[in-house]
Design a protein around this nucleic acid. Structure first.
Lengths: 177, 177
DNA sequence: AATTCCAATTGCATTTTGCAACTGGTTGCA
DNA sequence: TGCAACCAGTTGCAAAATGCAATTGGAATT
């Protein structure tokens, strides 16, 4: 028998490198972003509502990989025999601070549009306290974890969405119908 | 004449997406990491001392792209007519918090080796105050910015390197000769 | 019974990656 | 002065990844 000692061979044991081996392409984090901030849980939602126009074969491939890496999980939708529900795992939820930092950097240095960067701005201004609140919400939604204490007022996701809508209402260029 | 209205076409104006368009591959951040934490400034250093074994054509291509994106800069080495010195720009230096978060995530969730993750651990424990100190050092080294106030004691880079050597001395597996 | 919805898969052309060898020039040393 | 080592890449080529459009087989809706 040939050797197959471990799961996969890695280029190195450096945390930066290993993260890039898992997430270092142009689509994986886009999908996690849509699940996290856009609350997309089905293949169709991820495909049709994606801002960047991901192709269905790429989406299927990346979902498979993220699943294999334990960043997301997949289960049957009880109401539809052929619908699958994708959820973030704790490993995936904890990518939030990474998104916050990447978003802040992109907002500062790249030609972002206002309506798509307002969420990044709020996340940056809210800091770790807001991140933790959002992660708690994600644990409720994706892991079924009961809330430590009942929430008062709108959720972080609702606040992010409200800010987005407000920018849009102020006359930001409309996204394609 | 055909239309060529802007520099490049983007998939969307989302900060996450734009960052991925610039850095979303398996090598770009590896190169920035080596420049930032390993103090590699020449092509040969980046090529030969790279832990993951980058190929020279990939390295040349990524340096070209990072240069075009303004993440790094390039100048002639006055001492060697054919040596080029690569430096981080402010835009590149400000990737440090992104590295800190990615490193923390990788350290928690991926099979890192101790000797290659000790730096990530120190960066995580040091928090934003340490990051700012390191970024100040990088501005001195790469931008020539005079220090706001003279440094006392070892630099952040020296401290990170000392911790790495200490782990190695404790008997971590040796890297290949 | 027909249409729409669902999560993908297939075929194919294009692009990117990875590997090894090589290039034209410069520098250091005997 | 000559030669080896060093420098920043480039070249050629095979393999893999990506992008696009069309399609699949079954399930829910009307």
């Amino acid at each position: 028998m040939a050797a197959e000692k471990e799961e996969t061979a890695h280029r190195s044991g450096c945390p930066i490198n290993l993260t890039l081996e898992v997430l270092g392409d142009k689509w994986s984090l886009i999908i996690v972003r849509d699940m996290m901030f856009g609350n997309r849980r089905h293949f169709r939602e991820l495909l049709a509502q994606n801002e960047e126009g991901i192709a269905s074969n790429i989406l299927a491939d990346r979902l498979r990989r993220l699943l294999a890496e334990g960043v997301i999980s997949k289960e049957d939708d009880p109401s539809h025999k052929q619908k699958a529900i994708y959820s973030l795992t704790e490993k995936g939820i904890e990518l939030l601070p990474v998104f916050a930092m990447i978003g802040a950097w992109g907002r500062k240095w790249l030609p972002v549009t206002e309506e798509l960067s307002i969420r990044a701005q709020l996340l940056e201004e809210g800091g770790p306290a807001l991140w933790e609140g959002f992660m708690e919400e994600l644990r409720e939604e994706h892991l079924g974890t009961p809330p430590a204490r009942p929430r008062v007022g709108p959720s972080v996701r609702e606040r992010l969405y409200a800010a987005y809508m407000e920018v849009m209402a102020r006359g930001a260029p409309l996204p394609p119908p």
